[in-house]
Design a protein around this nucleic acid. Structure first.
Lengths: 360, 360
DNA sequence: GAACCCCATACAATCGATTGCAAGAGCTTC
DNA sequence: GAAGCTCTTGCAATCGATTGTATGGGGTTC
């Protein structure tokens, strides 16, 4: 391995001179012919600066850590990809740690990333309150940005959870639905909480009072939890004509429950999701859902983090707009009168496709 | 930030003694009461060893780099997740770089990871021959393991591409199909090449000669490429009763082409995929495909890499078995006689569900 | 021609931990 | 009681790059 001292020796200068010659910001201190000679020697020898030594000396590593609950998660993976794109083009490397849902492990990972000299952290795992990972960041004074999660006093990039949910509910209301049930996400996650708020706001905006009996709060964003919640709602409230789900996986679970209960979507019951994750445009019926700009969230979060590392500014929050994507899982409710004609089945709406992913 | 020297000072010993007291492998050199005192002081002060300094001195970083073409890719994300799991429980951190399809960028990333002192590399991007990233690994003498890609003289973990493809074709043959077309993957990827070989092998095993006219080689594993290839095959060869695709995304493209051509799946034409990526059990009709143990591939690759770092053994190849998952996109071909009765439509097979992912 | 200044370069300390070697203390053994 | 041994601890070099300070040479100015 060729080190700076080798380059310096080969160029007949002191290592400090070689260092300055190779560093654009310090180059003005070195005479031009010497700069040229050093550069030539460096490239001839294939010199690559040792990033570890550089980190040790300067205290900066050009390394960003990311904490995600599930690398393969269809929501967080594109966020990570967006962030990686921005970071690598700024010369930063990305270290990924996946603590799953374990808050303790998350804090442990923060310590480890700190020990490795990470310049900043992207946190996609923060709970709403008392997040140990967040506390660890504050304690070690590491710049951090939250993604897809909000929390007080820390920069964050989120989508408009409240507004997105309201969009979905407004769509259902406009179709004529009045008894709309909510399958909510975990209340300790900001997405769960805010989407519930958006649900209630949209109802109130139409002068309707939210009925607590029509809300099921799930413990996790999983298909199974969605199925259980939907099954309970369907069993207890036969007058419900629409299920508004805080997340696509919950909606898929709702599909399962409806199928099992013999309810057709959207003829008998409408279903909406949230996130527009890959492939939901291809399921039967294609899911009406709220599209979130995942890649953009990752990019903005990375940008925000680099800003904070560079200029050290205060906390700022970015809220990205979400958009309703109407596909085939929503339709007008059937007339309530018994024996009424069933809704027309023809010409099911397929809706816009999602942008695709290449695969291996 | 509390350093080793602070711990040593507080414990009244020399830093070297503190170092030995805190290192299990060197602890035998230090008297027990001193060990206890140093440990107590270290934990009281919240001492965390500086991994950067440690790397610089020892030359080992406990850091593994991973190169993937698309972090959000439904194939590579679970591989990454599996690898991350094994690595982090072995005390290693994971650095991810995403060069996309750019071979030059991949080599550049290898250099960068080397400069950061990565102890080993996981390569999911290697082309079949003359991969610059691979060459860079060899040049810098960094242990590397290929995942989901094979290449001569380098350890690799792949699924049984040949056998998996043969499984799918055998299934079609057994259903009675004889004119089976292949939508092949890129020939410079080992998956593309081996799956094509598996396709031909399965035909020959039945005494059938592969017809080159029934093979379309795509330039990339994308839905669009699949659609184009399928459209061409359908237009030119009306006697084809089944499309065997080298990858699920290609199969989704084939769905698009069939839909556009007015062909029903599986009544008019059968389609098979490869990979069993998330959600393909939910599309209409549910896709018959070959399941690959992605997570296991990542875990095994990580394990293999750690072995090579530890004991420095030679190259070894792991081939994991794939399994056919029969769902609703395959059925017996219609009798060729014109005017024959269409295949029964009832009781469409839904097939086994995929294991789910939690979502955010 | 002496004083001064500036430019270019070298010197040496530093970041934090590890580790080969030296040295002191305490013990045994003859 | 001296030599030798073991056990424990300290010393100092080292990994590779950066950077504040010192120093030398060359030019300018009066």
């Amino acid at each position: 391995m060729v080190a700076l001292r080798d380059v310096a020796a080969a160029a007949g200068v002191h290592p400090s001179t070689a260092s300055r010659a190779l560093n654009p910001a310090m180059r003005y201190l070195v005479a031009d012919p010497v700069v040229a000679r050093v550069q030539e020697v460096a490239s001839r020898l294939g010199y690559r600066p040792n990033a570890v030594a550089m980190s040790l000396r300067t205290g900066r590593s050009r390394l960003i850590g990311a904490l995600v609950p599930g690398i393969a998660n269809p929501v967080f993976a594109p966020i990570l990809a967006g962030a990686a794109e921005v970071l690598s083009s700024a010369g930063y490397a990305l270290m990924v740690a996946d603590p799953g849902d374990d808050n303790g492990r998350a804090a442990e990972f923060v310590e480890q990333l700190a020990a490795r000299g990470a310049d900043g952290l992207l946190l996609a795992t923060a709970s709403l309150r008392d997040d140990p990972a967040l506390a660890a960041c504050r304690a070690r004074n590491i710049p951090a940005v939250l993604v897809n999660r909000g929390s007080e006093g820390m920069s964050s990039v989120v989508s408009d959870d409240r507004g997105g949910m309201a969009l979905a509910v407004a769509h259902l209301l406009q179709l004529g639905h009045r008894r709309i049930a909510l399958i909510a996400g975990p209340a300790q996650l900001s997405t769960g909480l805010r989407r519930s708020e958006g649900f209630e706001e949209a109802l109130r905006a139409q002068g309707l009072a939210p009925d607590p009996a029509l809300q099921e709060i799930t413990a996790a964003y999983t298909r199974e939890a969605g199925e259980r919640a939907a099954a309970r709602l369907i069993a207890r409230h036969s007058d419900v004509t629409a299920l508004s789900c805080a997340n696509d996986l919950l909606a898929l679970g709702a599909y399962d429950a409806c199928r099992r209960a013999g309810l057709r979507i959207p003829e008998d019951i409408s279903v909406t999701g949230h996130n527009d994750m890959p492939m939901v445009d291809l399921i039967e019926p294609p899911l009406t859902t709220v599209r979130i700009p995942h890649g953009e969230m990752g990019r903005q979060a990375a940008g925000l983090l680099l800003d904070r590392i560079g200029h050290g500014g205060g906390a700022s929050d970015v809220v990205l707009p979400s958009a309703l994507v109407v596909r085939g899982s929503t339709a007008a409710p059937r007339p309530t009168a018994p024996g009424a004609a069933p809704a027309a089945r023809s010409a099911r709406r397929r809706g816009p496709a999602r942008p695709g992913h290449p695969e291996g």
